[in-house]
Structure formats: C-alpha cells, structure tokens
Nucleic acid binder design. Sequence first.
DNA 1: GCGTTTCTACCTACACGAAGGTAGATTATC
DNA 2: GATAATCTACCTTCGTGTAGGTAGAAACGC
Lengths: 211, 211
Amino acid sequence: MSGNRQVSRQPRGDATRQAILDAAERIFADLGYAAARLEDVAQLVGIRRPSIVYYFAAKQQLYDQVEADIFAAMHQFVLERMAGAGDPLERLLALLDAWLDFLVQRPTAARIIQRLVADLGPRGDNPVRFSETALRDIEAVVAEGVSTGQFRPVSAMHILNGIAAGALFYVCNAGQMGQTRAYDPADPDELERFRAMMHVLARAAVGQEAR
Amino acid sequence: MSGNRQVSRQPRGDATRQAILDAAERIFADLGYAAARLEDVAQLVGIRRPSIVYYFAAKQQLYDQVEADIFAAMHQFVLERMAGAGDPLERLLALLDAWLDFLVQRPTAARIIQRLVADLGPRGDNPVRFSETALRDIEAVVAEGVSTGQFRPVSAMHILNGIAAGALFYVCNAGQMGQTRAYDPADPDELERFRAMMHVLARAAVGQEAR
DNA sequence: GCGTTTCTACCTACACGAAGGTAGATTATC
DNA sequence: GATAATCTACCTTCGTGTAGGTAGAAACGC
C-alpha cells in the first residue's frame, strides 16, 4: 500500500492522548514515578488502564513523554519571555521571572523537577535533563553579563543553585507547612513579594545590588 | 544520644539496627520510598530481608525512623553551630552554614529532604516535617533581627525558600550534570565559593548586603 | 445507496513477576 | 537452657504487560 493517509487528521484519539499526558503529569507529580500507578492515571482520565497502553507502550515511555513536554514548554516559555530584554541584567531577571511564573502556573511540573533533582545522575536513555537545559539557558546570559563587565565574575551554576532553586522551593514548599503557615504560591501578593526578593538576590549575586 | 534503656543488653543487635538504618538512608535517598526495596537494604547490610523485620515491623516504620533521625541530627547540628553567635546576622549566617555543612557531609539526608518537599502535604501520622522544623529555627533568628531593626522586615519563609533551598540544591544537583559539568559538593574550594555566595545572598535578603 | 471490509479506540480477562510480610526452624550468646 | 538474632520457606497482594475481543466510524466496491 502506498501511503496516503494523513491529509486531515483530527481523530478523537489525540484528545485522549493529551488527557492521558495531563493526568499522568498530575499523578507522577503527586506520587513520584514508582508509586504512581497506571490505574490512577486511567481513573483520572476516565478510561481503563489498558487503553493507556494503546497510546503509550509502557509506563516509562509515558513518563518520559511527560518530562519531555515539561522541558519543552519551559524552555519555550523562557525564550518568549527573554525576547524583549536586551540588557544582560534585564535578561537575567526575565529568565528568572519566566522560571518562577512557569512553575507557579504549572506546579505539577515543579514537583516533577523537584523529584528529578533528588535522583542520581542522568539515566542513560534519557538525555534530556532539567539541570542541563536550565544551566545552558542561564550560561548564555551570565557569560554575556560577565564579558561586558556588567556582572562580577560569577558561575552560572551558582545562580542556578542559589536562586533558581528558590523558585522551585517557593512552589513545592507551599503545601508543606501546617494550616497556620500554608500559603498559596499563585496568590498575586505572595508571588510579587517573592519575585521582589528573588530580584534582590539576583542583583546581589551578580554584583548589582545597590550600585 | 539515642535511647539506651536496658542496661546490660546485647550490643550486637543495636549495631545491626544502626547498620540497617544507615543502609536504609542510603537506599531511600537513592531510589525514593516506593522504589526502594527492603531487599536492597538487606543486601547492603549483609543480612537477609526478614532480619530487617525483626528490628522494624514494616517498611514504613523503617523509613519514619530514618527521617526522624535526620531531622534530629540536623536540628542538633544547627543548635551547636549557633551556640557561639550573638549578633542576629551572625546567627543567621551560622544557621545557614550549619545547614549547608550538614547537607554536604550527609548528602543522603539532602536527597531525602529533596524528595520530601516534592510530596504533598504532611502525612497524618508523621507530625515531624522538615520545613516546619527548619522554619521554626529560622523564624527565631529573623524575628530577632527584625525587632532590633538590624534586618529589614523580611519573612522567614522567604529566607527558607530563597536561600536555604540553595544549599539543598547545591548538594543534590551535583550529580545531575553531565561529566563535563559535574562537581563535588564536598570539595573545599567549591564549597567555600558557594558559601560565600550564600552569605552575599543572605545579607542582601535582610538588607545588609555591603555592611 | 448499501453491504463489506478495515481501522480506531476502547474494553475484559489473565498471566507473571516482584515485593512485603508471616511462620517457624536454626544458630549464636550468655 | 533461655533468649536474642538470624535464617529458610511460604503466602499474599499488587501492578504491569499481554492477548484477544468488540462497537462504531470510515473507506471501499458495485
């Protein structure tokens, strides 16, 4: 059979596939890979477990796709937000803001990344790593700022570990407090307070604190 | 230190018990609770699996004990390190240094905490929570600095999320990079560079960036 | 237009391995 | 010889992956 198939593809299967990915992101974020059951995902979607296998051959593949989608979306989000900024400091702050906003609006992604960082080194078959991607994004900006003399010589790794980590924590830690201290990371006031502090820290890190 | 109630009891079992706890901390840190197998722990200790059950009735109890030991040791470590400091800023830096040093010398604890923060709210039966404990420690110091006017009004939560998170990341993230970028968090040079940056951030956060 | 066929998107049922926990025997220690 | 410590062997549960089936839509032949 000579192939002439996908002219106007809009099978309802695509919607199901996306629903499975959404549900899986939620379940993997809540429970972690090992504790997450395909049964949970199926229930959230409203289908039976083997139907998931129809779209994703194995649990690991489903997870890998969830992770890949998160990285892609995050990287894309960062690029869009940085498009307007020219000044290195401005670009650095835009980058950090992008991370913060992305994680706040998609806390499941934050928790998946949080778990990822706890794991041991990269799995062989999954070359896409959060920290690598994130580091590359940051390195470009930092290198520019340092080369123009606008930043003090500072390692991108330190910015990542010292500041970007805060954005993750801000989101993940919200649910960790008791009722008295719990906060909503998406609350505009709360978010802007944290953002302001993150900017202060970033300026301090690159040596632009009060100049 | 740890409970030593029965006076002339066989120390042999106590040693095994501790060996199990040490091995379990390692395995739980590496794999997370769900993926960790008691078989792995037993193998690391050099005993058979049911022998673990002789000391800990169930996997969950073993894990809870590991977690409790970590929190106790960390809190103790912080108290000792802060004993000498009087000035609020000095005390804050001592607290952060204590966290950093504790996590660096016990990276398994760092990874367990990292996973913990990814989980949803507190489990009912396990009242001891990292973030609660850590926050209480920090709140005392921050409240003092703010009341004396030495700190700008800043929330302890922000210090926790913005700065303490960095220490965790610094340790956990070390193994996440590719071979080219991997670093050893315990390397003295590396550690002191990160510590210096953390101090800069802390001073900036409380408004003491340049003294 | 209408039967036939094929494909999509699900389903039920089951087989199999993996892991936690249990029972009771066995060895070491005093 | 009693008690602590560890073992072997077994049971049970649970979750994945697989095999195979079915309703309905789309494509096809005439």
